[in-house]
Amino acid sequence: MPEPSGLRHGPVVPQLENLLRELLREQRWKAGERLPSEVRLAEELGVGRSSVREAVRLLARDGLLDVRHGSGTFVVAPPPVTEETPDVRQLLRRARLLEAYEVRRALEVEAARLAAQRIRPEDVERLRSRLRDRQDRAGGDPAAFVDADLEFHHAIMELSGNAVLVGLFTVVRPVLREALIEMVTHEARLPDVSCAHADVLEALARGDAEAAVAATVDNLEGTMAFIKAEMADR
């Protein structure tokens, strides 16, 4: 079991969920095996029982754990996948990603509008550097690419000058990061939204709030449409 120091400052539940998800991926507990109790996990990880309970609930929702009241929490064996049977975990992963994108759209559209009104010339070059870093990492390590992508969007959040928007994005960022890494890793036919990112930047550089909002919507809804289409095909 990892040391509690693996959890950083910030929202605990998303970090704890990601940690447990990684342990399950590494088969720390085998399929059918019972997890340690909430009390034991909380003590070993240095978190509250309520945080453990919520993280377990999210993993159970994704079909990774089976919470049996009175018996404990057990690791779910992945279902066999045939041509006639959809990959249930893939469907759950896409459904959760779609939820994350719906939240992301609400935050980023308003951030783009405000940033276009408040951006300064020196901000444009910093943002351009973030975008170059994102584009340079495309097609490489999924985690590095996702981190660079989120840095670009986080920079726009900060340029909005709205501390509440920045705070909300910071809260959802760990969940979004995990979902995006899985998407980039497993979805071979993802649409290339590099041009939409460039359009966002150029609109911000011009101080054109309407164009910045439109480019942000194009960027996010292109991926959302892809996810919905993939789910409909199953």
Rank of each mutant, 00 (worst) to 15 (best):
V184L: 10
V164I: 12
D133E: 15
G139F: 09
E182T: 11
A203E: 05
R126H: 04
E110V: 08
L201I: 03
V146F: 08
D199H: 14
L204S: 02
A211T: 09
L204R: 06
R130Q: 14
A144F: 02
E221L: 11
V166L: 04
T185K: 08
E125Q: 07
D123L: 13
A215V: 00
S194G: 12
G161R: 00
S129E: 10
V166F: 05
Q135K: 11
H186E: 14
A138G: 12
G161V: 00
A155D: 02
R132V: 11
S194K: 02
P174K: 05
M157C: 14
I181Q: 14
V146S: 09
A115W: 03
E110A: 08
I227C: 03
I156N: 04
A214E: 12
G139P: 01
V217C: 07
H153Y: 05
L176D: 00
E221T: 04
L159S: 10
I227H: 02
D149E: 12
T170R: 15
I119A: 02
V171P: 01
L131S: 00
A144I: 01
S194W: 13
A111I: 01
I156W: 11
T223Q: 14
T185F: 00
A196Y: 06
H153K: 06
T170S: 13
G207I: 15
R132L: 08
R120D: 01
R126I: 02
A144Q: 04
A148N: 06
R118L: 00
L127V: 01
I156A: 12
D192K: 00
R177P: 06
E151K: 15
Q135N: 12
P121H: 08
V200W: 06
E151H: 13
T223E: 14
D199E: 06
V146R: 04
G139S: 05
M183N: 15
E210V: 14
A116H: 12
S129P: 01
D133I: 10
M224D: 00
L114R: 10
A203D: 06
R189W: 05
L201W: 01
C195Q: 15
R126Y: 10
T223R: 13
N219P: 06
G161T: 00
S160M: 00
S194L: 11
G222W: 00
T170M: 08
R137W: 08
E221C: 08
R126N: 08
C195E: 15
H153A: 11
R137M: 11
L131C: 03
E110Y: 09
A209V: 15
D141L: 00
R113M: 07
R206N: 05
L168H: 04
E125T: 03
V175P: 03
A143W: 05
I181R: 12
R177N: 07
R173C: 06
D218T: 01
A111G: 04
A225E: 13
D133R: 15
A196D: 13
L176C: 04
A138F: 11
L131T: 01
A148G: 04
R113I: 09
T185D: 05
R128A: 01
R126S: 07
T185Y: 05
L131G: 03
D136V: 15
R126E: 10
P191L: 00
D141C: 01
D136I: 11
V146H: 03
V200L: 05
A212R: 07
A179G: 06
M183I: 11
I181N: 09
R126C: 07
